[in-house]
Amino acid sequence: MTVQSPAQPPGTTPGMPSRAGVSTRPAPELPSFAQRSPMKPRSGWRRRLTKLDEKAAPYAYVSPFFVLFGVVGLFPLLYTAWVSLHKWSLIGGKGDYVGLKNYGDVLAQPYFWNALKNTVSIFLLSSVPQVIAALLIAAALDSGLRARTFWRMGVLLPYVVAPVAVALIFSDLFGDKFGLVNHLLGLVGIDPVQWHKDVLPSHVAIATMVNFRWTGYNALIFLAAMQAIPRDYYEAAMIDGAGRIRTFFSITVPQLRATIIFVVITSTIGGLQIFDEPRMYDQYGLGGADRQWQTLTLYLYQLGWTQKNFGRAAAVAWMLFLIVIVFAIVNFLVTRRIASKGQR
């Protein structure tokens, strides 16, 4: 059975229920198949069938995903690629083939680079604190608490509030003149922050919305994985006299390596595509009068739907796609590095 050796990280595994539940069960049922094949020629046929099953089945299992994805994911992606190579008006439809001109046009616009900068900045402001906070919360949840379910469901509360409502509430809080945040800052003698004028404050406000909604969610994912860390490790560490903080860094973090990678990758992908929050941050939804918080997706939207230049918007979509992939790979490598360092 799989008694985990310390060298083998358990990853995202919330549990090993298979050990207790399943391992005992299937054994008596399964042999019947093999025993019920007395005739030699049939067993050849059967073997071939089994072979076929082994060869084909994996594809059958992944096929529902890929078939559906082909319709609702791949087709749009390829369609977008095709659009990006044409002059294409949203109202007027397809125009001439222009090769990579849309890409060149977009790269030559300073707004593209501004949007890229904003995207990365908001992404860093949201994902880094988020992962750290989620780890801390998960660790707190992982200690023997009273009323565990209450606390666990509690941290998931922000997730049940619709993003539209979150944006509605938070944009009210961050009003420049009459918002609650500036009101409170005023009480302690701090000048009002220009949340909708200055670049960094606007990024902080938007990152706050993101962090609000996703920190608890990620904490639960971490918690699930923490629960799978064999308790003996902690015991051993404690016998060695390691403190709480040391065990956290020398056992918990390395053991969560795969989960951390998972969370970092998914939040990279989500974070770079951030759309709802910046869009609903003011009443115009274009990322600020001076594009202070215009992210790449907002830029894409402005090109496509305000300017009706679908060709350029498609080009941005494809570049964003490539940027996200590059970021995901870099993050994967970096995270793996950091997490495995702790292990050594």
Binding site: F69, P76, L77, I269, Q273, F275, T297, F321
Partner: peptide, 12 residues
């Protein structure tokens, strides 16, 4: 596929 920006996919 997670990296595909969803906004543009809406039209197709």
């Amino acid at each position: 596929t997670m990296a595909v920006p969803t906004q543009l996919g809406i039209v197709p």
